[in-house]
Design a protein around this nucleic acid. Structure first.
Lengths: 195, 195
DNA sequence: TTCGGTATATATCGGTTCGATATATTGCCG
DNA sequence: CGGCAATATATCGAACCGATATATACCGAA
């Protein structure tokens, strides 16, 4: 799933400019499980256009600079179908928050608390937005399914953080008084286990 | 959180070779929320070594090729602490599965079913592994917290998929008989809404 | 003995992406 | 007028991905 696939997917749901594609990734239904920045979107749009998978037209607007709005061609729709039929290969989560929470005992308690609160707030905001969007009307079966899935995960995440926050803070408040001792995972380093 | 931070983090929990770092990301506690391939790990180790944050020593093994095992230096530990104190910036999920499920009505029912089953199996396997690892002994408070968080999310994900699978399959079996009509998200493309 | 496959172990490469930055247009406000 | 924000497009260097390459060691089959 590269930037071209992402652009095709967004455009398959309606015409858009490069800027709008980016905006829809930031706050639309796609953004939860994919992302692409301007640095990828614009070259991708250029290539898709050269390959005849999308066509662009210039549009003037009142009070705003002109924009190029892209439509997906029949060729582009077929290409998107091909992509969807390929075996999925990428499942990846990158989380700076979890990375820091993993080493919570090395951080000040106040900071760990802030990290958790921040994440709870983020989830709760997301949940409210998605709930609102769902009430306004439903999308396709697939979009609904994925939205429901996202809601379920956000709910579970928020709930876990709310329920276990105090236990972690209590544990590191005690641990924080001991010298920082790096704990060793049990099976991640087989050569260590062999020693 | 770049490859250098990841290597420092893994090494802070015990000495390891480049290969072992990669293996620990594939199946250790870190791999759920971060990742790095050989293409990033080896250049990062080289740089960290040049910067005096890690030291490498050659080790011979029986029945296996020699390896270079890296240890983190005091300088490296301080650098990791600095990194942990920086504000978190990256939270990203990329999921080929969800991307395809979003367009479920464009895909054959059998394929959608397989995608979902595959994901359920993956979650259930992960859950079992993590449960097993937890029984064997506990890690640091932070590691336990993050592990519990991961478990909660996997459980929620598996449960949602199991509970809603049939509804989606039923919906697209009906929809699959209509001409594929791209549905338009309601608020993702403000310029469309304006038209 | 040789070959193919697998595991361990390290390294590299071209294409892609990220994140930041730059530029341009338009409007608003002090 | 200048600064700021929003819209809109484009670019750039550093970093990364995914594939590939190479090397060592072992095992089993032909």
């Amino acid at each position: 799933m590269d930037a071209r696939a992402i652009c095709l997917a967004v455009l398959s749901m309606g015409d858009a400019s490069g800027y709008e594609i980016r905006k829809s990734l930031e706050s639309g239904p796609f953004g939860s499980f994919t992302d692409a920045g301007y640095g990828s979107i614009y070259p991708a749009l250029k290539r898709l256009s050269e390959e005849g998978m999308i066509t662009g037209r210039q549009e003037s607007q009142e009070g705003r600079p002109d924009k190029t709005v892209y439509s997906v061609t029949q060729k582009g729709k077929l290409a998107l179908l091909d992509i969807l039929h390929e075996a999925p290969s990428v499942e990846r989560l990158t989380s700076d928050h979890l990375f820091r929470l993993f080493f919570a005992e090395l951080l000040p308690v106040r900071m760990v608390e802030a990290l958790i609160e921040e994440r709870i707030a983020h989830y709760r905001t997301k949940i409210a937005q998605m709930r609102e969007g769902r009430e306004r009307g439903h999308g396709s079966p697939g979009a609904d399914f994925v939205c429901g899935f996202g809601l379920a995960l956000y709910e579970a995440g928020a709930h876990y953080l709310e329920e276990h926050k105090h236990a972690l803070l209590a544990a590191i408040a005690i641990d924080g008084e001991a010298p920082p001792a790096a704990q060793q995972p049990d099976s991640a380093l087989p050569s260590q286990a062999a020693e």
